[in-house]
Every structure is written in structure tokens, then in C-alpha cells.
């Protein structure tokens, strides 16, 4: 247990090892991890959400939208990163590409399933009120399905944070994973400290996104007792087959 005590001391020293030259601080590495994960998520969001929502809105492409989610789950992140390194070399480009590729499918599948499954009566009522297709999407379909769409975003975000740290194993330097990959400089206490930080970071991201989800969910849905927050932790894609 002494190791864990030392790990917390390491965190207290902001990632410095006594007697060693100054190392990148924990705060810096945490921010870098968030930056890489954030960029990858932004790229993936811009591609996946409009595509999934649009396919769901026109009720087309279910085969692609669902299977993309199934194949995604079968992609080992380390393998994807490794194959990317072989083609593109070690660097931010490869990491961002791999992360985006891994982040897109759950968001497409969830957005598609969400919008495609909107109660047809609701859509008919909106149409009857004279709404255009675009208005139906914006005022009815999207708001009632925010929780499900967001579940996909959370699945991806968690996966991206986790995979960002794994990118250190493929030689990319610039995330909390660096510390884990460098036990010689950081010793076991540093590795443990970094592991604690990574675990905490993932839990914080998860809770923060759960909070955002609750803020975005229309009040009416919350009163109806719609989505349980904990239920979104597991990829909902899994229930499609």
C-alpha cells in the first residue's frame, strides 16, 4: 500500500520526481490529454451527428448506420493505433485519425437509432401543425431524442479519453499515458499516480457530460421520467441486435 501513498505524493508534487530534472507537470499532461481528446471529438462530432441524424430523419441507411456500430466495437484501439502508425508514422496526425475513426461510429449509430425511432404520431402531429421537414427535425425529433443522442456522445468521449492515453504505447508523446509508458524515469509511484489521474479524468469527463446531458434534456422529458443517467454508461448500440 506504500506504493499508493507514494503515488499520491507524486500527484501532490504535480508529477515531479525528486532528484530528477524537471518533468512535464501533471496539469500540463492532463490538459494535453484533454486537448487531443477534444480535437478528435470535435472532428468526429461534426461528421457523425449530422450524418446519423439525417439518415434517421429520412429513415434510410439503417443497415450501414447499425452495422457501423457493430464493427466499431470489434476494433481494438491499440490495433487501430498500431496500423495507423505503420501507414502514417508516429505523430499527432495518426493519433487524431485513429481517435476520430473510433469516435464516429457510436455517435452515428445512436443518432440514427434515436431519430429513426421517434414516435410517428409525434411527427404526424407536427406535420399537421404545418411544420416543414426541417422544423420537425429541429423542434420535435431532436429535442425528444437528446438523451439517446447524447448517450452516443458520452460513449465516444469516454472511449476517446481512454484511447488517448493508450496512444502513448504507440510512441506518441503528449498525454498522461507518457508517464505509464516511462517507468524508468517515473518509478512505480509515478506510474500509479498517473493511473489514478487517468481514472479520475475519465470519471470526471463522464459525470460532466452526464450533467450537460441533463441540462440539454427538455424539462417535459425529465418530468416524464425518461432516461436514467446511469443507463447511458454502456454503449446503447449493443442493444440493437
Amino acid at each position: 500500500m506504500n506504493n499508493f501513498l507514494e503515488a499520491f505524493r507524486f500527484i501532490g508534487r504535480n508529477g515531479q520526481v525528486p532528484g530528477a530534472p524537471p518533468l512535464p507537470t501533471l496539469v500540463h499532461l492532463t490538459l494535453e490529454t484533454l486537448k487531443i481528446a477534444g480535437i478528435a471529438m470535435a472532428i468526429a462530432l461534426v461528421i457523425a451527428i449530422p450524418l446519423g441524424v439525417w439518415l434517421g430523419h429520412i429513415h434510410r441507411g439503417s443497415f450501414v448506420a447499425i452495422n457501423v456500430g457493430n464493427i466499431w466495437r470489434a476494433l481494438p484501439s491499440l490495433a487501430v493505433l498500431a496500423i495507423g502508425v505503420a501507414f502514417l508514422g508516429i505523430g499527432l496526425g495518426n493519433v487524431l485519425l485513429a481517435l476520430s475513426v473510433l469516435a464516429i461510429p457510436p455517435m452515428i449509430t445512436n443518432a440514427y437509432v434515436a431519430i429513426d425511432g421517434v414516435d410517428q404520431d409525434l411527427v404526424d402531429a407536427a406535420r399537421g401543425m404545418g411544420m416543414s421537414g426541417w422544423e420537425v427535425l429541429r423542434k420535435v425529433e431532436l429535442p425528444v431524442r437528446i438523451p439517446l443522442i447524447f448517450a452516443g456522445i458520452r460513449t465516444s468521449a469516454l472511449f476517446v479519453v481512454s484511447t488517448t492515453t493508450i496512444s502513448a504505447l504507440t510512441g506518441y508523446s503528449g498525454s498522461l499515458g507518457d508517464i505509464i509508458n516511462n517507468e524508468t524515469s517515473y518509478h512505480l509511484s509515478g506510474v500509479l499516480g498517473a493511473a489514478i489521474c487517468i481514472a479520475a479524468l475519465a470519471l470526471i469527463v463522464e459525470f460532466a457530460l452526464a450533467g450537460v446531458q441533463r441540462m440539454l434534456t427538455p424539462r417535459g422529458l425529465k418530468l416524464a421520467g425518461g432516461e436514467d443517467v446511469s443507463s447511458a454508461l454502456v454503449p446503447i448500440v449493443g442493444e440493437s441486435t
Partner: peptide, 15 residues
């Protein structure tokens, strides 16, 4: 189990 699932693999192995 949700907390266990949330902890990134790299961290859990090391912990």
C-alpha cells in the same frame, strides 16, 4: 460495475 467500466484500461492494469 459502471465505475469499473469507466476506468480506462491502461490505468486499471497499472492500478
Amino acid at each position: 460495475t459502471a465505475i469499473l467500466y469507466t476506468i480506462p484500461s491502461l490505468a486499471l492494469f497499472e492500478l
